[in-house]
Write a protein that binds this DNA or RNA. Structure first.
Lengths: 225, 225, 225, 225
DNA sequence: CATGAATGAGACTTCATTCAT
DNA sequence: AATGAATGAAGTCTCATTCAT
């Protein structure tokens, strides 16, 4: 019937905004905001130009909605994820970072980093929102774990903030790579995110850990999980 | 100097292309290629719209010239710099990375990273060029040092490529930050590049190093999921 | 009344076309035909966009219907009104003009003048219709009275057509004012229609009247410059 | 040479704004602001769409410029004209009104009345400007003459403001007619402005004048409802 | 009958590029 | 060589009209 190949008009209404946001995210990340035509977004979402404007008052509002929505989802997840683990600071960081990364990297949300980096200077509202909702919460979450690790003698007394950056920046960089150079056949130069991230986290955690010890009475490293 | 308020005509003529490239780099990085108007570039370079087209056949060519020129300079520098150091692998890496970073970060060239990330997908030629001229040379240079460190027993036998990434990606990320979030007052959240980079390199080098742990009772590093 | 908050369905159905015409008249006069959106008309009439098209095949047809309907009503009234009076030509004119004006000015029909003036050149059918149904009948009606006044020695032998215009144009102008400048707070500059019209008609009738008096000492008409 | 049929680019630059304003006035008056496409204006002025935007930032600004410029010219003229006459109040009014009217009616400026009436409600700034710069000065100018006529016993003691309106409104109405119904072949129904205006002014001045009527046989003016 | 989601032609506006001066 | 007026293709957004529900 009519619902087979031409889905019922009314039914789709609720799904439209999300479909448009998905299409917009993909295109904005691929081509940049300015270089993406509103009609392309509409077409990719399977609707006409006019329909886009039924749901978003302007292309710029669409951009903001894309970012806000993506980040909101991630924020909700992030909080939930962090609560689920326990154990040594090392294990905790490994778990939180790797799992968080796997989720982000695989999902379209990993693309938002590129979008933010690309568009903040044109739309400064993004900056405030992103810093408040993403950067700071994440930084505090990880910073606290590192801090605890230091306090418990598990980590060396390093600069907490720097350590967090050392851990996290490459994860973001890999996401950026996936959506920029990594997306180009020519010259895309292999960087397997999954294995790299694990190695990276291990490497940095190694650098953080108090490995140096009197040979004889090496305290048994707290084994977790 | 004589260039103060009324720069000599002759002098300027030769400098024009460079002035245009500088202006273009700054604006492309700030607003993105698509969102920058050719006339803005001309104005910022102190010439008129028409003059821009005397030197570059199109806006797109200007973009390619900007990237090519910036990278070429860096490449020349990079090779030179690397040759100048000796010592342990650690010391070498520390020197090469920190010095390279200081130079890049301070100079407008640090901006090219953002430009490349932002525009590769629209202009795939960039990808090939950048990979061939920047990524690979740099990766090999650093990879070789790490490799040597491992061979000499200075570093643990880690995945060389991953180690290089762990070392380098944050440096690039800090450059990106400078030209995106870091350039926004609101929400710009402090990240002092200079001190961070040093701490980061130290931390990773620490992770890489064979810190003497009694061979016999070295606890196998617990690696869990 | 029963129509207060939940008007009976059946009742409304028949009233729809009229409600739409009223809404359309008000909006077309306020903003102009081209600047009024079909949906606004529908909304003001309390129905949805689709419903408008159930009653009128297009926006343009709606315009024509608005004008036709308004004028038809006025024509019917006009003829009736004129028949009701007798007396001197002066008295007749005063009565017809003032009463006609009061009715028109107060009613939404006064707005049609603006609509006609605004839209004739885009929709020439209006011109023919308006001239035939409004201008000519009215002109003849008034012209006949003036003519009679002259024949009876009540008025001086003036140009009949010009006299009619002198009488009538300000009345129309006051209607136009009400719906243009008069509707703007800022700059609306007071012009009380009711008292002005009376004074105006009196003044012109005075000019028309044979006040001329003792033939012998007729004051020489002031010749100018 | 090149100047023959293709006028020198640079030369035209100064004339462009005026050419565009003229084209815009004509079209806005003919079709209304909303129904006129920016490109039509450009084409009529002999330039391309883009050029219009070189001189006016938006269609709306063009409208305001059209009105402002037309009125400014008229204001300058008006003041000059009024100063040039002397004689009886009648003669003065006749001269000022007829001459003013001839000038306005013939020139494209007569069209502004239609424009103002048509567009004030969409662009209220017009209202303020028009009232302040045109309505009030003109009204005071004429009002003063009438007032003087009354003071000198030349006119009957009528309501000054009403008298001014009686004199002036038909002049404006004739201008409106010229650009609305009068411009339509079908149904345009003849109204010769030039002769009408003279007759009208004479008629009203007659109504204003103190025609000496012997007190005893003054016919009681029939004033009924 | 009524609704309002969807459409797409068309209007405004921008801007890369050209070219007469 | 340099300028900047002019162009017109292309992009954003609106809105009259349709039609499935």
């Amino acid at each position: 019937m009519s619902t087979a190949d031409a889905p019922p008009r009314r039914r789709r209404k609720e799904a439209r905004p999300q479909e448009l946001l998905d299409a917009a995210l993909a295109l904005f990340v691929e081509k940049g905001f300015a270089a993406t035509r509103a009609e392309e977004v509409a077409t990719r979402a399977g609707v006409s130009k006019g329909t886009l404007y039924l749901y978003f008052p302007s292309k710029e509002d669409l951009l903001k909605a894309v970012i806000a929505q993506c980040l909101s989802e991630r924020i909700a997840e992030g909080a939930a994820a962090a609560a689920g683990y326990s154990g040594s600071a090392s294990a905790l960081l490994r778990n939180v970072l790797c799992e968080w990364w796997e989720r982000i990297y695989a999902s379209p949300a990993g693309a938002v980093f590129k979008l933010v980096i690309t568009e903040v200077r044109n739309f400064p509202e993004i900056s405030e929102f992103y810093t408040r909702e993403v950067v700071e919460p994440a930084h505090h979450l990880l910073g606290d774990i590192v801090q605890r690790g230091i306090a418990q003698g598990e980590f060396r007394p390093v600069d907490v903030s720097a350590a967090v950056h050392s851990l996290v920046l490459p994860l973001i960089m890999v996401c950026l790579h996936k959506h920029s150079l990594g997306a180009c056949e020519a010259g895309a130069w292999p960087l397997d995110g999954h294995t790299f991230i694990r190695q990276h986290v291990d490497l940095v955690l190694d650098g953080l850990s108090c490995r140096t010890v009197p040979a004889d009475n090496a305290p048994p490293p707290p084994i977790e999980t």
